[in-house]
Simulated scan of single mutants.
Amino acid sequence: MTVPMANELGWMLDEVLKVPETRHAILLSADGMLRAHSVDIGRDDAERMAAGLSGVQAISRGTAEFCGSPHTPWQQTLIEFAHGYVFLVAAGEGAYLAVSTTENVDMEAVTYRMYKLVDQLGKELTSPARQDTGSPA
């Protein structure tokens, strides 16, 4: 039997959704694991989005050379759809914050609120890389 993930940080993500025209927010780790989700998105959907968005982040980071240097640090990815946007920002070591919105969102306001949340939460949002837990051969 699987123990359900505690959504202890979910209420903090709901703060981002105070910007009009926002839809959902999730916190994910670099390896695609869901860390938290806003109240208005189900766990299964949030887990699926976390897995997909970790891939988007990896691709974005991999194209840094296109901006001048392969060592340019990744900060944010914005995906535009016909009916909305997905904002993806760094939220500490190995953690990312994603917010979906409608097409009518104030992009500056949602980005500001996301970075403000990241600053306020600090180490709460950090998801360090997993350590090898395998036994020696």
Rank of each mutant, 00 (worst) to 15 (best):
T72F: 08
A30Y: 05
T77R: 08
V3K: 09
G42P: 01
H24N: 07
T63I: 12
T101W: 04
S38E: 03
Q57C: 10
A46W: 00
Q120D: 12
V89I: 14
R23L: 14
G84Q: 05
D44W: 02
G68H: 11
P20D: 14
V16P: 00
S127D: 11
P20I: 04
A50M: 04
L27W: 00
D132E: 14
R35L: 14
L13F: 05
M1K: 11
A51Y: 08
G68K: 05
E124G: 03
T126W: 09
T111P: 00
H71Q: 11
G52I: 03
S69R: 05
H24L: 04
V89Y: 04
D31G: 05
A90P: 00
A64I: 12
A64V: 12
A90E: 14
L13W: 01
P20M: 06
R130T: 12
V39L: 03
S38P: 04
R130W: 11
A6R: 09
W11C: 03
W11T: 15
L117Y: 01
P128V: 10
L78C: 11
L78D: 07
S69M: 06
Q131N: 08
G62W: 07
T111H: 13
Q120V: 03
L97Q: 08
Q120G: 10
Y85A: 06
H71S: 15
G42S: 10
N7Y: 00
T63R: 04
L27V: 01
I79V: 15
C67F: 09
E15M: 07
R35C: 01
S135I: 05
D31R: 14
